[in-house]
Amino acid sequence: MLAFGWLAACTSPLATCAVQSCPEPKTLTIFAASSLQPAFGKIGNQFQANEVKAQGHVVNALSFVFAGSQMLTQQLGEGAAADIFASADIAHMTQVNAGGLVASPPRVFAHNRLEIAVARGNPKGIHTLADLARSGLVVVLADPSVPAGKYAAQALKTAGVTVKPASLEQQVTGVLSKVAFGEADAGIVYVSDIITSRQVDGVAIPNDQNVIAEYPIAVLNTGHNQAAAKDFVDFVLSADGQSLLKAAGFEGV
């Protein structure tokens, strides 16, 4: 997960079922922004549990690819086959849509806010975005080509703060790991990252400086499993899906 999104691909464990009556599960490939990893892991498990409840076995083997939205967009543009794309911003979904890859209109399924990630107990006493400009503080941001980096730059600009970042990471999880490892004193990530990581503390950013990220999802026409893709998107938008997203720190729609 440090460098290549492809490494993050994983398949959910299959439920057991009688050997003779068990049809081979079809693969459902989901390209999702890295900030969605914890939430989609849970949603995927619940989606499969529902399949087992309804049909007695797992119908679709879920194959997730988590990476920065910009990287997923590039891979889709180069012809990577996926059934679903979930982006951390509207811009990359628009780009994929413009490439003629989207089967049905994208729908926003979640919102996310920014928060400052600091070490447990906030030893450096960071309370506002302005504190990030303090000299001697090691601050890590996501690269502006990544949605999280773009949003962080917007928030800093609104707050009128100039930060000298030590590094510009290629995905938001890179920012989180640098803070969690203690190599950076602070970083700007999503609220959902802090809630699910449990290794860092969050410092809230006031609403007037914050940016609300919109997460759109769409079924792609490059996939081979469109009916199941639609079911998955419907589940994400259902009350159950939304409550799983909320538990992972997202705001529903």
Binding site: L2, A3, A166, S167, L168, E169
Partner: peptide, 15 residues
């Protein structure tokens, strides 16, 4: 590439 981006991060002109 790999060791550098992991250990040194990414910043123009520095790493």
């Amino acid at each position: 590439f790999g060791a550098t981006i992991t250990f040194a991060g990414n910043f123009p002109g520095r790493t």
